[in-house]
């Protein structure tokens, strides 16, 4: 079968879009002063990550990323932004202090990034000799209900506790005011 013309270039282009979305979204999420923009940056990052999950042979996870992160988490944060104060207050600290602490945070996160990249890039990782299964949705379901059934049930308990806790905290605040 003849391969699609310039298939490699197309794949590279889609991959570049995914990386660009992820990086740009993370930068917007961290650097913008308005909270609503940083939520949108988080959503962009999640779209990029979903594309990357396709490249990592996990289409189910890509779907879940969009469903949970963009559909649930970002929307919930937007609700909170609308309920609370929308913007960051202007900085109380002086210009020099802001410069100093910002530079320090930049140096620390840059060092973390550099160290992790060095660790990942320099190491000779060993590829597996065989694959136990293909990692399809069917395999995921089987593993979830056999090997990981206890973790699965515990996660559902955690989610239940989180829902109840959120309800209790929000209700308590309302009755007080």
């Amino acid at each position: 079968m003849k391969p699609f013309p310039a298939a490699d270039l197309l794949v590279l282009g889609v991959f570049a879009v995914a990386v660009l979305l992820t990086v740009a979204g993370a930068l917007i999420a961290v650097l913008s002063t308005r909270l609503i923009r940083s939520v949108c940056g988080l959503a962009l990052t999640c779209f990029g990550l979903a594309l990357l999950y396709y490249f990592l042979h996990s289409p189910f996870l890509a779907l879940m990323e969009i469903l949970i992160y963009v559909g649930a988490i970002c929307v919930t944060i937007i609700f909170a932004v609308m309920l609370a104060e929308p913007d960051e207050a202007p900085a109380q600290e002086s210009r020099g202090a802001a410069f100093l602490w910002g530079g320090l945070a930049l140096v620390v996160s840059g060092a973390v990034f550099w160290a992790l990249v060095q660790l990942g890039w320099g190491h000779a990782w060993a590829a597996p000799t065989s694959r136990a299964n293909a990692g399809t949705v069917h395999d995921l379901g089987v593993a979830l209900l056999t090997t990981y059934s206890l973790a699965f049930e515990l996660i559902s308990l955690v989610l239940l506790a989180a829902i109840l806790g959120a309800l209790v905290i929000a209700h308590h605040g309302r009755s007080k005011s």
Partner: peptide, 14 residues
Amino acid sequence: YLALAAFLFAAGVF
């Protein structure tokens, strides 16, 4: 991918 994850982590810490 590892470098990208490191970047996300560093951005989160920042």
